[in-house]
Design a protein around this nucleic acid. Structure first.
Lengths: 322, 322
DNA sequence: TTGAAAGCGCTAACAT
DNA sequence: ATGTTAGCGCTTTCAA
């Protein structure tokens, strides 16, 4: 039909016909069918956002940035939650493949996401990695400076006299956890403090894992005077578990962590933490993705967003005797 | 092709052909095209979730519940953020229409959303309303008990001796704001406390509006001893603004509010508030929607979810002299 | 049990 | 400036 031409505002059309068509469309409440359009155009104008927990203030803000950027560019956003689970992630990747989204912005659950990303690549679906790198995958990514952030935190603790600093980390399957460990070790080494493997515990970045960490923390001897929890929700749950066990924070144990708590941080900056620009993670992730969709041959880009130390009441100087 | 039959596991097929087809599908990395499927089936297996702020812990949790329920039922979820703006909402409704989603779960920006909902109805797109009612629209909805919740809060304050209680409300365009005002008035009336219109201020449910409210609050004479902020983020911003002005909370002014703060509430229950089961809002909203999709003639259902008073440090008893 | 034909609503390419 | 044809990848219907 000529109708297609007026909808897409393409080709030559007399003003008269255009108006007539528009009038009829109004009357009929006609709405173009995006599905049919997608089928012939081979693009859906849909992007998919796969994060590990929509309930975490960090990813929430990421989602906000992603949604804003997607809409501004005429894209729809499909939401997925992987829960740090490779299996859920795979299910979602399958959905994404058959849905024929134009691109995927993904926070991989970990290194084992590699096959998923390779699947996307094999099917020619552009993707951008958010927050975590996956070894063996060269692609666009938006990352934070986990090594640097961890160093800042640990160095800050050391500056306050802490020497026995524990690390409650995420899984070594996840690049940010490895980087935070690396930063932790660097900071210790620079100040000539020995690295004690017993002071490092792994979890799964999920709040549910905090209880076990608290127990191990309590059993350590000599007790640490401070602990670096690798992310915000982990820190929160850890704090709860510690208090439940009668361990005073920060009186007996100081805590520092990564990522803020959105609105709550503003009101009550309890935690000393390294904050990352979550909104920009989302926004720039989508930007990279759209540019990638438009130019598949450009070299991969890697954006590293800065972080910033914010002090709160969760830390107090170590007792001189300690 | 026979292929369709094996994919959909429909019709009679010899085991031999089925296996052969499956093998070839594997080799070719074949993935069915959902777009083409949608075009002929006239359903996309996609639901749309439109909320007012993905960054608000309440809606975040709603989104989580919605995502879980959608996935469990084989549906994809399209995410939209209206920012309490009728215009953004209309844009999103347009998208939704052309996308041919199977249904919409929406938190209307307010009463002016009515035309949007009528548009959906006219186009035969099932929708379920979340959290807020819209006069003149009869449809499935999942609501909280705003009247009852507000009564509980105000009654609690009165029980602690407060008599001059202000209300920083949302817009009267929004049903929950009207209901919270109604509950507030009921509680006052039952205790024989006069209603003072000057003690009620309207905002837009958005944190940005808190500053103005704080200013008016400060200018009131006699000063209120307590204030009921109609939602969580409003309460948070209000608290900030008040403290910035040197007004001590709860020393000089007690605050109560609606909806919790997700994880943060657990750690530090600062606010006395009425908590709603946000996850269930999302989950049941999607359930209603799917049932509606499957049976368009059933009578509309209205689910009212209970809320619960939680006390925190944001309230202290009124001075006896007050 | 399998195949062939038609059509979902659209756009690109080619007439007119 | 407008109309026609073909085809995107699938499912339905009907035929073999």
């Amino acid at each position: 039909m000529t109708v297609s031409r007026v909808i897409n505002n393409t080709g030559r059309i007399s003003e008269k016909t255009r108006l007539k068509v528009q009038k009829v469309m109004e009357e009929l409440h006609y709405v173009p069918n995006a599905t049919a359009r997608s089928l012939v155009l081979q693009r859906t104008m849909t992007l998919s956002l796969l994060i590990t927990d929509i309930t975490n203030p960090f990813y929430t803000t990421v989602a906000r940035g992603a949604e804003d950027a997607a809409r501004e560019n005429g894209y729809k956003l499909l939401l997925g939650n992987s829960d740090e689970s490779v299996d859920k992630e795979r299910e979602y990747i399958d959905t994404v493949l058959s849905t024929r989204v134009d691109g995927v912005l993904i926070t991989p659950s970990g290194d084992r996401s590699r096959p998923h990303l390779e699947t996307l690549a094999r099917h020619g679906i552009p993707f951008v990695i958010l927050d975590r790198e996956v070894p063996g995958i060269a692609c666009d990514c938006v990352l934070g400076d986990s090594v640097g952030g961890a160093r800042k935190l640990v160095d800050y603790l050391i500056g306050l006299g802490h020497r026995r600093i524990a690390l409650v980390n995420g899984s070594p399957e996840v690049s940010t956890a490895r980087d935070r460990l690396a930063g932790y070790r660097q900071a210790l080494a620079e100040r000539g403090i020995g690295f004690a493997p017993a002071y490092v515990m792994e979890s799964n970045y999920r709040p549910q894992d905090a209880e076990a960490a608290a127990e191990r923390l309590q059993s350590l001897s000599p007790s640490p005077t401070a602990v670096f929890a690798a992310n915000n929700l982990l820190a929160l749950s850890l704090l709860q578990s510690l208090r439940k066990r009668g361990i005073g924070v920060p009186e007996e144990l100081s805590i520092v962590t990564f990522d803020d708590f959105g609105y709550m941080s503003v009101l009550d900056p309890f935690f000393t933490l390294v904050a990352q620009p979550a909104y920009e993670f989302g926004r720039q992730g989508i930007s990279l993705l759209i540019e990638r969709i438009e130019n598949r041959d450009a070299p991969p880009r890697r954006i590293v967003l800065p972080n910033e130390l914010t002090t709160g009441r969760s830390v107090r100087p170590a007792a001189p005797s300690a």
